[in-house]
Simulated assay, not measured.
Amino acid sequence: MNSLPIFKKKDFSPHVPKNFVVVLVICFIMLVLCVVGSLVLGSRPIRLDELMNGLFHPSIDSYEANVVRKRVSRTVFSLFCGAALGISGALMQAVTRNPIADPSILGVNTGASLFVVGGIAFLNISTANQYILLALAGAMLTAVFVFGIGSMGRGGATPLKLVLAGAATSAALSSLVTAIMIPRSYVMDQFRFWQVGSVSSANWSDITTFLPFLIIGILLGIISTTALNALALGDEVATGLGVRTGMLRLIAALAAVLLCGATTALAGPIGFIGLLATHVMRLIMGPDMRFIIPMSAISGAIILTISDVCGRLLGSPGELEVGVVTAFIGAPILIILARKAKVRSL
């Protein structure tokens, strides 16, 4: 580990959780069930033979086979987006030492949305790469702004101050998004579903564009995991263990912004996935970031895919956008977590 820039000497390495293998097997089974459910459930249920035809017989051009192929790209995209948001939430919580940090709660998603909507209205952007570049810029600037506001005053960046700063910033940026869209009907028509978060329009081109950002974000998150364990003990202890805390926060924050910004650009501001995924894994497995980050990716993929399927079933013959479903589930959980004394710090 000495080759990594965030370390100066031997790192801090907790033991492997005893239940890791069991949790991994259960998550893998749930992931398989989610994939199957996403392929066969919806306003038009798919039979097993229709599923096989759509997956393994490309020459068949029936309606059912085309529905299956469309759902394959949608399922892959929802898995990738859920994994990205799960890791982003875990990294944000670790960097800020705030157990209720999440891209949506801290306003990062809204900042990305503002830049994308502004790009459409004023710069006539139309490609996925342009969406992602603007979303990353908006997410990064918003993250710096919220953390700066939350760090002011006595006590520094406490969980409560960060949440309040994020909520205020998100409200202000949402107003700007609305102000840009209302007089421009073409912008509103183009992104009225995107605003609440959706994976329904996913295609393989979007997945190909999104994949490099996902890989880079995951790699940056993985190389930060061991040092983040030390950071949880406090900056002074982490420095004593050889962690370069400034470089660590920069790398981890960059990974979080890459993941949530790219996701927001293509799927819209889907909220609460990072919060739910990370809290579930921390509750089951403990605080070890070496396992929290990969397991948050898996649980985030599961939660988002389940939410997408539930939106299809609840809204049949249409569908509820996945952002509505995750907000309905996540908002009460956020209230419960915010009321606990344990949210003061990690």
Rank of each mutant, 00 (worst) to 15 (best):
R344T: 15
I303P: 00
G330M: 06
A171N: 07
D102N: 07
L258H: 02
V146W: 02
V117K: 01
S38P: 02
P17S: 11
V23R: 01
G246K: 14
T245K: 03
V325G: 01
G150C: 08
R339I: 03
V280M: 14
V163P: 00
L211R: 01
F77D: 04
L173V: 12
L51E: 06
T326W: 05
G271E: 04
L258A: 02
C260V: 11
R97M: 11
M285D: 08
P294S: 12
A262T: 11
A172E: 00
I100E: 03
L346D: 14
L266Q: 04
S174P: 01
V243D: 04
I333M: 14
L314P: 00
I333K: 06
G261M: 06
A143F: 14
L233P: 00
C310R: 00
T169V: 14
G315V: 07
F7E: 08
P45V: 12
T264R: 01
L136P: 00
R290A: 05
R290L: 10
T158K: 08
A252V: 08
L136F: 09
V95P: 02
M295E: 10
T305H: 03
A230I: 09
I284M: 14
G138I: 03
T169F: 06
T209G: 07
A128N: 13
A327P: 03
I303F: 15
S151K: 13
R69M: 03
I270P: 02
S201K: 13
F80W: 10
P45I: 13
A83I: 09
F328C: 13
